[in-house]
Amino acid sequence: MAGQELEVQQKKEVESQQEKTIPARFYVPPTDIFETADALKIVMEVPGVPKEAVDVKIENEVLSIEGRIETTNYNGLEPLYTEYPIGHFARSFTLPWQVDQQNITAHLEDGVLTLTLNKRPESKPRRIAIQ
């Protein structure tokens, strides 16, 4: 797999379910979702977002993630040539019932945000002993 050429993904602007009140564009972070025996993992790419600028909220079974980029890094820089837009990131997901909403952890490293949504004990696979 690592042998293939990496293609550029065009950034997709958020078409908001809930509109933002701030005058700036938001983008949809490319996201992988996968399931392990114990948890559902959501991994999203949010380059330029520092740890303290990530908001993860749960409301009415909806998990919303917002990551704001650090604009002060661009102070004193004048664009000469640009290929990609920048902006904050936002995305939300409806949680399945199997997820324990009290037991969600988040980890940010090198612009990759990993959310671990642990499953409720009753939704984990169980072995049934034969009596």
Binding site: G3, T31, D32, I33, T36
Partner: peptide, 23 residues
């Protein structure tokens, strides 16, 4: 460089949007 993504063994993938490869 090269970009890789690892998921671990025995996972079931629901959605895959991150890209990988050499550049």
């Amino acid at each position: 460089g090269a970009k890789t993504v690892t998921y671990g063994d025995g996972v079931s993938l629901h959605r895959r949007e991150r890209t990988i490869g050499r550049f």
